[in-house]
């Protein structure tokens, strides 16, 4: 097991190198000058040139890349041109809101989707099944920003039940923290909920037809126990895969939702940094996201073993 984890971690290095080269190239092909953004629209070209020199933007790109990637390997992701703080610090400050949002969206999605999926599978073909699956189709089809705007208008502006936008950190009170996250979490989590519900249903259906379920039934085991204890657990591996994959897309999709709801998360950090060409932050954040994708996938793979002992045995 340890060797496996180590191998997976080592595979990070080539991934990082590829990501670094691609991001760096993209950044330097893209037009736009951070110095001009800092100095504002009426600055003179002379001042812009001076600031470029000061920020080290006049050095040859290769030199910039080597010194930057060298620092990255030592854990130094550079300093933000605008925020005047280390990129990793800025990243982790913005990570809180994104994680809160993603976790909240994921929890909402799981809580809603798994029972729905289970019920739909249990009562396959019924009106209940068709309604749930119809709703889930809608969930997949409606883009999150549209749902977000709709929620803002209905719940925030018309009914005034929840705040329309903004973010309160946990130290402003858990209730406040969550109150601001409910609408964005629904907007963000709806597609995940739909995917998970559909996967739960089909995976449950496979298992419900298995022989050991028939055996359990013939033994007179209670139906609820059959569904939850015998079927759901055995159907859980594909569901977990979907949950793991969608958690990654949650972080990506958060960029859109964070903009609509004005949440200072990673998505907004990257979008703002692109707008003002804060190269260090963009490069650093993308690297850190790449690392976390690899790590999340690793955790999911390890979780398979926890749920299904056969997977664990197979790896030994």
């Amino acid at each position: 097991m340890k060797g496996y984890i180590l191998k997976r971690l080592l595979s990070l290095i080539p991934v990082l190198l590829v990501v670094a080269v691609v991001v760096f190239l993209l950044m330097h092909i893209t037009p736009g000058d951070p110095a001009a953004v800092i100095l504002g629209p009426e600055a003179s070209p002379e001042e812009v040139a001076e600031l470029r020199e000061e920020l080290g933007l006049n050095k040859p790109p290769i030199e910039q890349f080597i010194s930057w990637f060298g620092n990255v390997l030592q854990g130094d992701f550079g300093t933000s041109i605008f925020m005047k703080q280390p990129v990793s610090q800025a990243f982790f400050e913005h990570l809180g809101p994104t994680l809160s949002l993603a976790i909240m969206a994921q929890v909402l999605a799981i809580v809603v989707a798994i029972p729905l999926g289970v019920l739909a599978a249990k009562f396959r073909g019924s009106i209940l099944d068709q309604t749930f699956m119809g709703i889930s189709l809608l969930g997949i089809s409606v883009p999150s920003f549209l749902l977000g705007l709709f929620l803002i208008l209905l719940i925030g502006v018309e009914l005034k039940w929840l705040p329309v936008a903004g973010y309160k950190p946990i130290d402003a009170g858990l209730v406040n923290h969550i109150k601001y996250l409910i609408l964005p979490a629904i907007a963000l989590g709806s597609m995940q909920a739909a995917l998970i519900a559909r996967m739960t249903r089909s995976s449950m259906l496979d298992v419900l037809n298995a022989n050991y379920i028939k055996t359990a039934r013939s033994k007179g085991v209670k139906e609820t126990i059959i569904v939850i204890k015998h079927t759901l657990r055995n159907a859980f591996i594909p569901i977990l895969t979907i949950i793991g994959q969608t958690f990654g897309t949650l972080v990506a999709g958060a960029a859109v939702v964070e903009t609509v709801f004005n949440i200072p998360g990673i998505g907004q950090l990257i979008i703002n940094s692109v707008e003002r060409r804060d190269f260090a932050v963009i490069q650093g954040s993308v690297m850190l996201i790449a690392v976390s994708y690899v790590l999340i996938n690793l955790v999911i793979d390890l979780l398979y073993g926890v749920i299904d002992p056969r997977v664990r045995l197979g790896r030994k």
């Binding site: 803002i152 705040p163 329309v164 004005n262």
Partner: peptide
Amino acid sequence: FQFVTDASTRLAGIQSGE
């Protein structure tokens, strides 16, 4: 000064009293 770059979010926020 809350920085709200999205125009529709500013609009919704002023209507709701945020």
